[in-house]
Every structure is written in structure tokens, then in C-alpha cells.
Simulated assay, not measured.
Amino acid sequence: MTEQTVSSAVAVRDTGPAAMVEQYRTEYAALVPSHVNADQWIRLAVGAIRGNQDLEQAARTDVGVFLRELKTAARLGLEPGTEQFYLTPRKSKAHRGQKIIKGIVGYQGIIELIYRAGAVSSVVVETVRERDSFRYVIGRDERPVHDVDWFGGDRGELVGVYAYAVMKDGATSKVVILNRAQVMQAKAKSDGRNSDYSPWNTNEEAMWLKTAARRLAKWVPTSAEYLREQLRAQAEVAAELPAGDGPALPQPSVDLPDDDESGEDEGPIVAEFVDDDEPSTGWPEAAKPGQGAAR
């Protein structure tokens, strides 16, 4: 960075992270997909920081990290500070234990990317609790039968989660089903699982849904363009940005590992079907009428 760029970045930083987002409005507007309202996206990003003191302090620790995470959300066209794209404070060893911002694609974000591929008419992602009735036999049932007594009081603890998609031709995708042990295995791979701010601790059910949605995304057409951008945005610390009216976005002070809250490799998902040669163990493997993005 030139001395002038550094000076400009420092000057903006002194006004706060939210003001920095406004400062780089042109750059972010150039990154979001054409179907996304850039002004609304900026308002969401600014509101997420201004409305949370912990997030604002974490953003100040390394503003380059904060702005980089917003770049990921912008390229994906996902709403920052929502269940599409979480913004969470995370302790960083490289910053001597101070908190920095970590962006995490949520289950609603994954489902949104599935819809963008244009091949599905609906996505179902649902958790199962111990007092629910759940039936699914591989090779016999096209889709799970999940009965819930919505007015019967406590449904009990989470015991499983499933996800599947209905294609536009009416066919059902591979059904993904995970039991508690399998979800806990995914959680154990998450570096941030013990953080007070981790979605595993602040919104556990959403992380169960995300784990199933991620598995489903391997079996249905997904927007490869957006996932490639996600991989690129997370891998690059100093990604190039289109020229804008303001100074270039400041970069993180250090390289940070891109750990994922679901404990799984993000990886690009190509927009094509994969042969179902995966053996079924435990529960068969797939979303939620109420919480999934069924349309």
C-alpha cells in the first residue's frame, strides 16, 4: 500500500468500521451479483456492526480481516449479519487473543446458492426431535415422513436432521439424514466450536441444519459460479478489487486460517449431479419446512 492509501485507511478507521463500509461502497457494489440491491446490502453490513458492540470492537482489531470477510459475503450475494452469512467475533492467536471478525456461510446461504442453480423447485431442511415421528426406508420411500405435534408442548432434544431437494421435473434428490453422533462429529472438526460467539453455541439448531444442507449441496446442482467465488474470496487475503472512488480496501495484518463452523471443507461444488455410490451407514443421508428455504 502507498503512504497515501495507508493514511486514507487510517483516517477512515478512526471513524469506525461501519463508516469504513460506507467509504468502500463503490467497491462492494461492484462485487455483489447483479440481482442484489447494493444499497440494501450496505445497510445490512453497517447495521450488523453498529448494532453490536462486540462485533464493532472485533472489527477494529483488524479492519482488513473485517473487510475481507464482507468481500466474501458480497461476492456470494449473501446478507451479512444474518443466517445467510454470520459475522462472529473470534479470538485470534495472531492478534494475541484479541477478537477479530469471522464470516460464516449459514444454512440459509447454502440453500440460497442451491436455488440459484435453477434446477430445484424446493429445498427441505428439517431437524428431528425425540418426540417426533420419523420414518424413512431406503429403496422404498421417496422422501422421509416426518410427523410433528406442533401443539403438544416440548418436542424433546434434537436427535437428527435431514435434507432433500425436489427437482423441477418432480424427482427427489438424494436424501441426506444425519443422527446426533454424526452432527457432533462435524462439530468436533470446527476450530471455533468452544467460542461463546460460535453459532454452535448461540444457534445450535441452525448449525444442525447447515451440516445437513452442506451434505445435500454435494448431491444437487449448485451455483458453481458463486461457490468458486467463495473459495477464491476465502483463500485470498489480498484479492484484487475493481477500481472505485475510494481508496483500496486495507488488507488483513496477518494471514488467518479459514476454518469453517460446520467442520467440513467448503470446496467448490460443481453444478452437476454426482453418482450416488456412497454407502449408507447409520441414518440414511438430506431441510426444514419451517426453517429451510422451501419455496
Rank of each mutant, 00 (worst) to 15 (best):
M1E: 10
M1R: 12
T2H: 04
Q4D: 12
T5D: 05
V6S: 04
S8K: 10
R13W: 14
D14S: 10
T15E: 11
G16H: 07
A18C: 09
V21W: 08
E22Q: 13
E22W: 06
S34P: 02
V36F: 12
V36W: 06
D39N: 15
D39F: 07
R43K: 14
A45Q: 10
Q53Y: 10
L70C: 10
A74R: 13
E79K: 05
Y86W: 15
T88W: 01
S92Y: 03
H95V: 05
I100Y: 11
K102P: 00
K102T: 14
Y107Q: 07
Q108C: 05
G109E: 03
I110R: 09
I110F: 11
S121P: 00
S122D: 13
V128P: 02
R129K: 10
R129P: 00
F134E: 01
Y136P: 12
V137M: 03
V137T: 14
D141M: 03
E142P: 03
G153Y: 11
D154K: 01
V161S: 05
Y164M: 01
A165N: 01
K168L: 09
K168N: 05
D169L: 07
A171F: 04
K174F: 03
V175D: 02
V176F: 01
L178S: 00
V183Y: 00
V183Q: 00
M184A: 06
M184F: 05
K187H: 03
S190Q: 09
D191H: 09
G192A: 13
R193Q: 01
S195N: 15
D196V: 13
S198I: 08
W200N: 03
T202C: 05
E205C: 03
A212S: 07
A217D: 07
T222A: 15
T222C: 09
E229C: 06
A235Y: 06
V237P: 04
A239I: 13
L241H: 08
L241K: 03
A243Y: 02
P247Y: 05
P247H: 04
P250K: 03
P252K: 07
S253M: 10
S253T: 11
L256I: 15
P257N: 04
D258I: 12
D260N: 14
E261Q: 09
E264H: 01
E266H: 01
E266N: 02
G267M: 04
G267N: 05
V270P: 01
E272W: 08
P279F: 02
S280E: 10
T281K: 04
A293F: 13
A294W: 09
A294Q: 12
R295D: 11
